[in-house]
Nucleic acid binder design. Structure first.
Lengths: 202, 202, 202, 202
DNA sequence: AATGAATGAGCTTTCATTCAT
DNA sequence: GATGAATGAAAGCTCATTCAT
């Protein structure tokens, strides 16, 4: 009954944990299903009871982790009580960046595998499962006071996500062309001017 | 002799061509060294006379292609005779984007594999080989009139490259969140404000 | 109780039905125990309560199906009231061939798996279970009037079964070297002369 | 040059030999490619340089062995100088049966895998490769004097092959329903009457 | 320099079978 | 009796790399 269900969840989690560690340590390429089950301590066949293949577990991992990160960032911003849209977005960005600086493994996993498509899917799923976690609606709620249409709002979000995601990767991992703290002012400056661009014309 | 040298170059080029086609058609993953040599018409062993492994030929390919694209874009901008830094960078960006829209295979190859590290290496190598092609120096020459220090100049370039590179990927390939033409005004607006940010404070 | 007994029989039959469909559709090779239980709607472990393994259920299937076919053919011949041994055997053969033409799945199942050994076992079991179904005795009863010894009778049956079984396989499935109707006259001619051979010398 | 070619032939032959032994000992089912290469003493990958898979090597084996057997039988018959068609066919049959009695491994291999389709392909290939080995033409040459049309000739051959092939299997392997020597008179009697049937009506 | 046959470790995936529930 | 999660051996097959020619 419940016992079996709990054991199954434990197996699943154990596989996800093992995969996360290995993917972030050795990369997707160099991680085999064999590696995952060995670290997880289950049999090879068991993997296939829970996931279709390596790419399936990768996707589930990326979605889960990025969703969690975003939710935390959003909540942190709400607690801080920023008023202005620019400040809200910078707060969220800052939170995410600081987390990724600490958890470089997540940075690698998410950056290399989180496409805009997956992000939208993530947010859609968040909407479906937790009614208090509809991020896209929340985002629109944030942009609404500035009279930004829904279409433009999405393009803006897209530009911001891509700019932040892409630019922090080298800065955090290789401190190239500069370290994260040096980059931040310019990055947030860019965030500010991108928002301004949409808010003005919106 | 020169003849032998020419034959060797032809082999090398033939392998690079084959690899480009295959990588852009089937992706890195699903392309084997066997596939490359078969299409190239040389023996398996020959591959290893020219490249260390699959990743080596991939890197050389990415560097070569992105270097060529950048050089073309730069020359096109010079011919157009833009005066203002913003306009110069937008012109270059526009040229690159239009090319990638046409050659989606290059987009995939470069986006997936061109990191900031490789780009800098590219430009350094350009400097070494062709003295009239030192792109980084040329870039500094472009930014100098606006009193932007070399360090800031590099950070700016970094932000621009990442923003453009990352944001055009989904727009071109999946027209998501919008197609390239729709995105351009916002993208160039962002370019403008990022440059402004550096030029003001510089 | 009877109820439990009925439920068990239903499970068994359900497994046999599923196996028949799958074996004749995809072949023995490509049918797994998993497939069988899935189609049958019972649990994996349940299979092993009723059958030792895949080969066990295959044998039971072949025996059951060929026994049924033979019984039908025999009854049909008796109703038709043929007098002469040759006509009796040809009638039976004809009935079997026509059935196999309609049910090609049975043809494949039986031809590929029904050996002379299994056939004899079949007939022996028929004898054991149903006293009104002892086919081998019935066959001897048919041959007795022609003074064919029991040994020769068996050899004759053997030759007939092998000839008919083997030759109809390609004719029915691939119409090669000719279709069944074209083959029949020659086949029945051969049956007649084989019987004659034994009857003369018997 | 020739050396490499010879080495390749030796590898191929070595694989074929190993496969023959294993297929006839343990059966197709229970023989894996791993088994074959182990016995052959080559690496796993080498197998796939010469054969597409297990079924490919099986077919090549069956065709080669049955072709060889048939050619020997035909030559033996020609040397014996039989005049009458019946005697010629019985001579060939007898030779084949005696060989299969000695080499039971071949019997299993050929019986289980030699379908009428493969046989015809075999004979067609014999025709293509060796101009003095066109068995099908030779067979027609044998039947021609008796005014048997080409179509009927083929049906006759079909019936004979199926009768002999199927009936000797149990007799040789399990002496069931009787041993080969006991069966032969009846079998040859049947051959004679089948031929008579066609010769009469032809 | 060029070849391509040979290698064999390693991959993904399947599946008959067991056994705790 | 019935279940189905778990097992892990073993399958087929690939492929980067080597090396004798």
């Amino acid at each position: 009954m419940g016992k079996i269900e709990i054991k199954k969840q434990r197996k699943r989690t154990s596989l996800l944990d093992a995969a996360l560690e290995l993917f972030t340590q050795k990369g997707m390429e160099d991680t085999s299903v064999s590696d995952i089950v060995t670290r997880s301590g289950v049999a090879k066949g068991t993997f296939y009871l829970y996931f279709r293949d390596k790419y399936d577990i990768r996707n589930k991992l990326v979605i889960y982790q990025s969703r969690r990160l975003l939710r935390e960032a959003y909540n942190d911003m709400m607690e801080a009580g920023c008023e202005l849209l620019e400040e809200q977005l910078i707060h969220i960005s800052n939170y995410v960046l600081d987390q990724l600086l600490i958890r470089k493994d997540l940075l690698v996993l998410i950056s290399k595998n989180l496409s805009w498509g997956i992000l939208k899917k993530t947010m859609a799923e968040m909407e479906a499962e937790d009614d208090d976690n509809d991020f896209i609606e929340k985002f629109h709620a944030l942009t609404a006071p500035r009279n930004i249409t829904s279409t433009k709002s999405e393009i803006m979000l897209y530009l911001l996500v891509e700019l932040i995601g892409a630019s922090c990767y080298n800065a955090i991992l290789y401190e190239n062309p500069c370290d994260l703290e040096t980059l931040k002012p310019y990055l947030f400056g860019s965030v500010r001017s991108i928002v301004a661009q949409f808010a003005e014309t919106g």
